[in-house]
Design a binder for these strands. Structure first.
Lengths: 223, 223
DNA sequence: CGACCATTTGATATGGATCAAGCGATGTGG
DNA sequence: CCACATCGCTTGATCCATATCAAATGGTCG
C-alpha cells in the first residue's frame, strides 16, 4: 500500500514538473498547524467529522477499522510525506493513530476544497492524491487474496520502497500492526519472517530491522 | 462494494439537490457513445490507456485483476447507474468485462477533466464519485478479513441494496464471479448458500435468484 | 434426446488460527 | 548492580475452516 505515492521526500529529477503535494500543503493560504502526537495517540476516530486533511511530517500513522467483535484491520500505514484523511462523506470512515512519536500537519479540508474550486492545479492534485489512494486500496485487496508468505513479502517490498536504504528496512510498527494490516495473526507473521531468514532471503538484526538479502527471490515470491 | 453510490436510477425525492452523476454524463458537451457489449466481452484491458470514463446503462460489468498464477480477483461489480474507469495514471490498472449483454456509455476522460477545470460542480462530482469508489474499496478490504459466511451475507446485502425489490435479488453473475469477488472458492460459496437456505435464512428459487427470508438475522450475521 | 456447462454435494487435505509456553530486551525498585 | 516484572516476539502442538479433488445433479440449447 505504501508503494505508489508520489509524495516522498526524495529529491525529484530536475525538470520534472510533477505536481507534488508540496504546493497543496505548502500554499500560503493553507498553512495549518504542525501538531505533535505521542506513540499510540489517536489523531481522529471513526465517525468523527472529517474537517481536516493530514500530512505526516515525522513519524508514522496507522489507519484502521475495528469490527463489532474486536477484529482490527489496518487499512494503511502513512509515513513521512504521505497525506491522509480523505473521506467520501462528512465523517471519517476509520480511525487514525500515531504509531511512533509523530508530527502531523493539519489543514482545514474546507480551505483545500474551496481553494480547489478556484485553482485547477490544486484540484488536480487532490484528484491525483485520491486516485493514488484508490490504487493503494486495490493493491491491498490483491494482497489479501495471497497466501501468508506472499503477503509478508509484498509488505516488505512495499516498505523497502519508502525508506532511502534500498535493502534495509526500519519498521516503525509492531508485529501486531503488521498482522492486522496483512490479515494474518502475529504468530504467522513471525513464523514467516523466521522462515525467510532461515532460507537466507532476509536477515533480522533486530525484530524491527530487516535486511533484504535476496531481492530477486523476493521479487519472485511477490508474484 | 455496491452499497454507497449515489448513482442509482431510483427516483430522487423532490427538492433534493444532490449532484447526481446525471449532469456529469448528461452534459451536452460530453455526450458519448452508448455501446453494446456481449456477455463476456472485454470493455478494456489492464495496462491499456485509460482514455474514457464509463457508465453502465444496462447490464452489468466485472472489474478484475489476474495474478501471475491465474488467480483472479474481482475488485468490483458495476450495475446500471454506476460509473467506472477512474485511474491513478494514464493506464487502466485492471480489466473490465460485461457479465451480461450490456449497454455502456463512454465519455472521453479528457473531456470530463477539461470540463472539471472550468466547472466546479463537475469537479465536485468527480471527487464525490471517486471518494465513493474509495469507500467501496475499503469496504471490500473489510469484507476480505471476514469468514466465509460473513462474506457471503455481506455480498447478498450489498446486492439487495441495488435492486428495487427489497428482499429479492436477481444475480447477474455466476458463482465463480461471486467466489472471485469474495476471495473464496465456488464450492464454499455454494455450500454457504445452501446452508443459509437450510436454515431458512434465504430461499433459492433458482441459482440466480435469491430471496432474503430473515433480514434481521442476515443483518446480525453481517456484523 | 443428448451434450455441455453451471451448480451442488461429498470426502479428504492443508494452511493458517488457536492455545500455550519459552525467550530476550527493557525498565523498575530494592 | 542485580532480582524481578513486563512486554513484544518467537517457537511448539493441535485444531479447524476452507481449499482441493472428485463425482453427481440439474438446467439450457442444439
Amino acid at each position: 500500500m505504501l508503494v505508489r505515492t508520489a509524495t516522498t521526500s526524495e529529491p525529484r529529477p530536475a525538470g520534472h514538473t510533477a505536481l507534488g503535494t508540496e504546493s497543496m500543503f505548502g500554499s500560503v493560504e493553507l498553512v495549518g498547524a504542525s501538531i505533535p502526537f505521542a506513540r499510540g495517540e489517536e489523531i481522529y476516530g471513526e465517525a468523527e467529522p472529517a474537517d481536516y486533511l493530514y500530512k505526516v511530517i515525522k513519524g508514522s500513522v496507522r489507519a484502521y477499522k475495528v469490527l463489532h467483535d474486536g477484529r482490527r484491520q489496518i487499512c494503511a500505514f502513512y509515513l513521512p510525506g504521505d497525506i491522509f484523511g480523505f473521506e467520501a462523506g462528512e465523517e471519517h470512515s476509520f480511525s487514525a493513530e500515531a504509531i511512533a512519536p509523530s508530527t502531523i500537519l493539519l489543514v482545514k479540508r474546507n480551505a483545500v476544497t474551496a481553494l480547489a474550486t478556484k485553482d485547477p492545479a490544486i484540484a488536480r492534485q487532490l484528484w491525483t492524491v485520491t486516485t493514488a489512494e484508490l490504487q493503494k486500496m486495490q493493491d491491498h485487496v490483491m494482497l489479501l487474496i495471497k497466501n501468508a508468505q506472499e503477503r509478508v513479502v509484498s509488505f516488505l517490498l512495499q516498505m523497502a520502497q519508502h525508506g532511502p536504504g534500498a535493502d534495509e528496512i526500519e519498521l516503525p510498527m509492531s508485529r501486531q500492526d503488521i498482522a492486522d494490516y496483512l490479515g494474518l495473526t502475529i504468530e504467522t507473521v513471525s513464523r514467516t519472517l523466521t522462515q525467510l531468514e532461515t532460507r537466507a532471503t532476509i536477515a533480522l538484526p533486530t525484530s524491527r530491522r530487516i535486511v533484504l538479502r535476496d531481492r530477486s527471490l523476493l521479487d519472485r515470491l511477490n508474484s
